[in-house]
């Protein structure tokens, strides 16, 4: 390629990415713009640029429910943080065993692990609810948090197994020669090389737990326990009068923490082997 044209492709790539980005973000932009419109204009006025701008939806939405919206954000933050820790610890432990250790019936357990991802949760929810109701966990955060510490999100086990399997075995063997046991190999050799997978797990757990309407709606019914996704639904009324303005405004606010977490986490996503300098 002639040197003359070198800068052009870079610029073109930027342009393409920006155009594609705008296209992808149109729905979000529409939501942002609608959240800034007076409520009666949202559906009467289809365009992206609001003719009248107001913060009313934000101030109103923030205080529309029993508690201020910050209260629900806090509830969600607590549950989500615990879920992230739980998944990181429990799933990486299990993944290491599946990826690196030999034990009887390994294939069977692995198949069961995969199988547990495959059953749609709508049918297990009733038996599960019965279990949690029996031990009096309804209206506590335990039905949502404890399963994470018990690695029931098999998705992440599988994810980490796949990552660990891309790591050369020589690493483990080198560690073993240095006298490291399984635990030390796991903590000092495997985990540091799995940072991208761990970051992925943390990010997804955070986002999915933050957005998980179904479980939280079922188990946290007391109006003091509600979390963000459940609180958001209160702006919706299928039979009647939905508060679209506040819904959009609060939806955008609730995107804040997950987007922030993603921004913070994504640098670890891309800081894998490349920076640790694997030979």
């Amino acid at each position: 390629m002639p040197a003359l044209f070198r800068p052009a492709p870079r610029l073109v790539r930027h342009l393409l990415l920006i155009v594609a980005g705008l296209f992808m973000l149109y729905p979000l932009l529409w939501m942002v713009s609608s959240s800034l419109k007076p409520e009666e204009l949202i559906f009467r006025e289809p365009g992206l640029v609001p003719t009248a701008v107001t913060a009313e939806n934000y101030t109103q939405g923030w205080d529309a429910l029993k508690h201020s919206f910050g209260y629900y954000l806090w509830n969600s933050a607590v549950i989500t943080s615990l879920a992230v820790i739980g998944n990181l610890v429990a799933c990486s432990l299990a993944a290491y065993a599946f990826a690196r250790l030999e034990f009887p019936l390994k294939k069977m357990w692995f198949a069961i692990m995969l199988g547990s991802i495959m059953l749609p949760h709508h049918v297990t929810v009733v038996p599960q609810y019965i279990v949690f109701a029996k031990i009096d966990w309804i209206n506590t955060i335990w039905p949502i948090v404890v399963p994470k510490f018990l690695a029931t999100d098999a998705f992440f086990i599988f994810l980490m197994v796949q990552f660990i399997r891309t790591l050369p075995r020589e690493l483990d063997e080198a560690a073993a020669i240095d006298g490291a046991g399984y635990w030390r190999t796991f903590v000092q050799v495997i985990l540091p090389l799995c940072v991208p997978a761990l970051a992925t797990t943390a990010i997804f757990t955070f986002i999915w737990t933050w957005n998980d309407f179904f479980t939280q709606n079922l188990y946290l019914t007391n109006s003091d326990n509600l979390t963000v996704p459940v609180a958001l639904r209160q702006f919706m009324d299928t039979g009647g009068d939905s508060s679209w303005g506040p819904l959009f405004a609060m939806s955008i606010i609730s995107l804040g923490p997950i987007f922030g977490f993603f921004l913070a986490g994504q640098k670890y996503l891309v800081q894998g082997v490349a920076t640790t300098g694997l030979k």
Partner: peptide, 10 residues
């Protein structure tokens, strides 16, 4: 043994 311990929570 180690494997089962790693898998205990699961």
């Amino acid at each position: 043994w180690a494997a089962y311990l790693f898998l205990a929570p699961w």
